[in-house]
Design a protein around this nucleic acid. Structure first.
Length: 985
DNA sequence: ACCGCCGGGTGCC
DNA sequence: ACCGCCGGGTGCC
């Protein structure tokens, strides 16, 4: 590898990691300790020349302040108040001055211009993004011609001097900082049970973790705000057939009140007939519209879906429930047939078809399956599913429930409308495509017009769950129209959608529709309500998916997520945008008023964030209590850390590899180049972690990564192959930056970024010659993508396994526990989790030897096989496997493995949250037994050091999102210390 | 703008 | 006076 390539590739590798931090969509999540350490490590590199123009002024410091003037006030309509924040915007095409800088108020209305002499100095700084300049008008807001403006200059520390010098050249000296102005598998079944080899019990006692250690940062935000007005309960509409739990009634009450509220949004006050924003000091006559929605951030398993279903039916229209009034029964039955919807059974059949197909392609013809197997007649049922097919489309847009005959009278329409809304209606004539004139009722009154449709957007994996739950919880006699907008036969007609009560679709369908904008019926409907299930999937503001969601038109907006803040405060911004919270939908105001104050630890910053989140979020954890009783009567859960000691042979191999790694790392440390050799450091650590599990895991293919040679094109390719293997085996959160899902057919780009093959191919196709890497904007070519030779990693393991099987300390400890458990109670099921799927393969051998029945779930399995594995494991019969081998990242959030009550975490994860989520797959609603989690950690190894660093990070985080960090050099030193800690240097 | 600047009108004291 | 001074016209970038 040439020096040059080494530099650029490693730079990109790092860049990828850093991007993961800033945009939270890299395969390395920021929770990954390594990459967390990255942060602004690249600040010294030539980042500015790269198109990485993301506004990451996260680590911005204040350079200084300057008083300037805003001129030309009389030409613009934008007004400001004293002390109001203003935004500066370059106007390079101004015909009078290429240096022009506009001054806008919070609403984006132009107030004036920066006086030209100053603008001449500022233009370069703004254009080169050397600093971000923020303005506040201190006084003189009422002036007719000019007004003063206090400008504060923010940027990366390394740009400070250049900015000061530049300003000086133009005769401006930045002043000091006035304190007051800082606002600113295939499943394998063994034969019969037999004893198998015996395993020793671990020598060291298991240590239980305290609940405090398990507490997440997000929950800390809610801690001192338990004295809420969110304890009111509301019984759901009678159309809901399920008895709601107390906390679900609270959720319902809170959601209904948020949808119907007339209160001002957070940080707004009414002051003498004007509406003031207390953060920006912006005021306007028009009342800022309240957010009719919010974030339901309950823990997984508390019933968010049920709460939303209850909301839809309870607050169906204008504070009223879904109508229960029966419309002529005959007509109803008739309409059901005419609409040819699927029966429940058929839907389930269709669902299986759906699951058998690769979820990513979303190409199965759900509706075709449905319509081909559709019966001629069927009984009325509780929930109607409307499917689009060519023959139905023309009629489907007719008013719900009643297919209006062509000669439909005004009277009938009125009846219909009244039954629906209890409101006066007007009737207008409309022609459908066939030219048959029918009548359609349109509600005249009501602030929401005729909107009545709720759009639910969810990941494909939970789509069927929504349908199941609608069926389960709505009384049989209630006829709610649900349209599943999915599959190639989905309607193109927005009218079909807007005549439903509920439309359910997936993020990927929405996103692909959005790609052909003019065609998307989803974007033409004025929705009553849009619900985002697993709403954190829109956390990357640059993703097309997010754009597709944000461009939906809706009055009531809800986000369901158990993890609103996954990595950083930034995750919240997309959510806030979706909720249309003024003024935060504009990135600048979000930064200035919330994000920066919090991250820099500014006074009151956290309080603001708390106030904001408290206002729009309802969050209960499984341990939350209502009137002193836990919201869910979940059996207790205990987490034990089981330390194990390596055997002498293992220790020998470990120490020799460790010393080898130490030598490499200490050389980098002394050269001061460690931070630019991350791939090497990572490789060392991965190998050590693998050794802690089983020596077979250490792939010889990875060991050559540190060798440096001259690069031929073949070499470059080989390096890329090694890099992708490293990424795939590192156990870090492998996520595709495009689909934000776990990697499917991973490929690595020439610039060393890893994506799903289908995802990146789509990008290349779409952008043709111009295609650029979504992460670093490096050029992309189809023929330069390198795939991971999948067979390599696994086959080498399989060969070793076939040839000479051997045990390991961890396998010994696991098998001891499993055998012991089987002796005590053979019905207890266990989940065995590892980040290394190859380790799962090794464990398989041990399980077979001891006659355990097991199944396996990992990321390489098709959706169909996954479902089979889950179903067989969840079955209560005696033939059902008692052990599930699970790869840490496999399966979506909804994965339900409640059949298990024991979890064995074979190796510590970088991300404690990933561990937590894994435990929750069995510790959730439906779990009847006490759950015991065992984390195996090898004494005196990287694993133990990983735990040390994790807890050290937790302490450092102190405030929810980490206060002002130390200087960049201190940070770098800290990272180096972390690496040294990991290898005992 | 109750300013600054511009350019025309004007011109002893 | 190729000045000074006066007062009207005028006004972002």
């Amino acid at each position: 590898m040439s020096r040059n390539f080494m530099r650029s590739s490693s730079w990109n590798f790092l860049q990828l990691a850093r991007y993961g931090r800033t945009a939270n969509h890299s395969q390395f999540s920021s929770s990954n300790i390594f990459f967390h350490l990255e942060e602004d490590d690249l600040s010294g590199e030539d980042t500015s020349s790269l198109a990485d123009s993301q506004e990451d002024f996260d680590s911005a410091i204040l350079f200084g302040m300057l008083r300037g003037n805003v001129v030309g006030l009389r030409y613009y309509s934008g007004v400001v108040n004293n002390n109001e924040m203003v935004a500066l915007q370059r106007e390079p095409n101004n015909q009078y001055d290429r240096n022009a800088v506009k001054v806008n108020n919070v609403n984006g209305e132009q107030v004036g211009h920066i006086k030209k002499e100053l603008a001449a100095a500022l233009a370069h700084i703004l254009d080169q993004k050397m600093a971000k300049i923020e303005g506040v008008v201190p006084y003189g807001a009422q002036n007719a011609f000019t007004m003063p403006v206090n400008l504060s200059f923010w940027g990366r520390a390394e740009n400070k001097q250049a900015v000061l010098d530049h300003m000086m050249k133009y005769g401006f000296r930045l002043g000091p900082i006035p304190n007051s102005l800082q606002l600113g598998h295939g499943s394998a079944k063994s034969k019969s049970e037999r004893a198998g080899p015996s395993y020793r019990a671990p020598i060291l006692p298991a240590v239980q973790m305290t609940t405090e250690q398990l507490k997440t940062e997000f929950d800390k935000l809610f801690e001192d705000l338990k004295e809420d007005d969110k304890t009111q309960e509301l019984e759901p509409a009678e159309t809901i057939g399920t008895q709601l739990l107390s906390h679900q009634k609270q959720a319902l009450s809170w959601m209904v009140s948020r949808e119907n509220t007339e209160e001002l949004p957070p940080f707004w006050e009414e002051r003498n007939h004007l509406y003031y924003n207390t953060l920006t000091n912006f005021a306007e006559k028009q009342k800022p519209e309240n957010v009719r929605g919010g974030i339901l951030a309950d823990d997984m398993g508390l019933g968010k879906t049920l709460s939303v279903i209850a909301l839809i039916l309870t607050n169906f229209y204008d504070g009223r429930p879904f109508p229960t009034k029966k419309i002529k029964k005959q007509e109803l039955a008739e309409s059901d047939v005419l609409k040819s919807n699927m029966s429940q059974k058929q839907f389930k059949a269709a669902k299986k078809t759906e699951l058998s197909t690769d979820s990513r392609k979303e190409s199965e013809t759900l509706s075709q399956e449905a319509s081909s197997s559709r019966p001629k007649r069927q009984k009325a049922r509780k929930t109607k599913y409307t499917y689009s097919s060519a023959s139905e489309e023309d009629e489907a847009w007719l008013p719900r429930k009643v297919k209006a005959p062509a000669e439909c009278t005004l009277h009938d329409d009125d009846l219909f409308a009244n039954a629906l809304f209890g409101l006066p209606t007007a009737v207008r004539k409309k022609k459908n495509k066939k030219g048959v004139t029918v009548s359609q009722s349109i509600s005249k009154a009501g602030p929401e017009g005729q909107r009545r449709t709720t759009l639910i957007i969810c990941p494909l994996s939970v789509l069927s769950n929504w349908i199941d739950q609608f069926e389960q919880h709505i009384k049989p006699e209630v006829h709610l129209n649900i349209y599943i907008y999915y599959g190639p036969e989905r309607t193109k007609d927005p009218k079909v959608l807007s005549d439903q009560d509920v439309v359910v679709t997936t993020y990927s369908v929405l996103s692909s529709d959005y790609g052909s904008r003019s065609e998307s019926p989803l974007h033409k409907v004025k929705w009553l309500r849009v619900v985002l299930d697993e709403g954190h999937t829109i956390r990357n503001p640059n993703a097309q998916q997010t754009q597709a969601v944000l461009s939906l038109e809706a009055q009531r907006r809800w986000i369901l997520t158990g993890t609103p803040i996954q990595n950083s405060l930034k995750d919240l911004w997309s959510l806030i945008c979706f909720l249309k919270l003024k003024p935060f939908t504009d990135r600048e105001w979000w930064h200035r008023t919330i994000q920066r104050p919090v991250t820099t630890g500014e006074d009151g910053g956290l309080c603001r964030l708390q106030a904001l989140i408290k206002n729009i979020t309802l969050r209960r954890t499984k341990t939350s209590k209502i009137r002193g009783r836990p919201v869910l009567d979940l059996p207790e859960r205990k987490v034990f850390i089981q330390h194990v000691e390596l055997s002498e042979e293992e220790r020998q191999i470990y120490e020799s590899l460790k010393n080898e790694g130490k030598a490499v790392i200490s050389r980098y440390v002394s050269e001061g180049t460690i931070l630019s050799h991350y791939a090497d450091v990572l490789a060392v650590l991965v190998r050590l972690r693998q050794l802690c599990c089983h020596p077979f895991l250490v792939s010889s293919a990875l060991s050559s990564i540190t060798t440096t040679a001259d690069s031929t094109p073949g070499d470059v390719r080989e390096k890329l192959v090694q890099k992708i293997k490293l990424v795939l085996s590192s156990g870090s959160d492998e996520e595709c930056a495009i689909c934000l899902d776990s990697l499917n057919m991973p490929v690595i780009t020439y610039c060393a970024h890893v994506f799903c093959k289908p995802c990146i191919c789509q990008v290349i196709q779409h952008e043709k010659q111009e295609a650029k890497c979504p992460l670093c904007r490096g050029s992309l070519r189809l023929d330069q993508l390198v795939e991971c030779p999948q067979e390599d990693l696994d086959s080498s393991i399989n060969k070793k396994l076939e040839q000479n099987w051997m045990c390991s300390t961890k396998i010994n400890a696991l098998m001891h526990a499993l055998v012991d458990q089987r002796r005590k109670d053979a019905t207890v099921k266990s989940i065995v989790v590892s980040q290394f799927t190859s380790f799962l393969s090794v464990i398989e051998v041990a399980l077979r030897e001891s006659g355990f029945m097991f199944t396996r779930l990992d990321g390489s399995m098709t959706q169909k096989k996954r479902t089979e594995a889950i179903q067989s494991f969840q079955r209560p019969d005696a033939q059902s496997p008692t052990i599930m081998l699970l790869s840490l990242k496999a399966g979506g959030v909804g994965l339900n493995l409640t059949a298990a009550s024991r979890v064995f975490l074979m190796d510590p994860a970088w991300n404690p949250a990933a561990e937590e989520q894994c435990f929750d797959r069995c510790h959730r609603l439906g779990q009847t037994k006490k759950v015991i989690v065992t984390k195996f950690v090898v004494r005196n190894s990287v694993e133990e050091n990983m735990l040390k660093i994790q807890s050290k990070k937790r302490e450092l985080a102190a405030g929810a999102f980490g206060k002002k960090k130390s200087s960049s050099s201190q940070l770098k030193q800290a990272r180096i210390e972390d690496i040294r800690t990991l290898v005992d240097l």
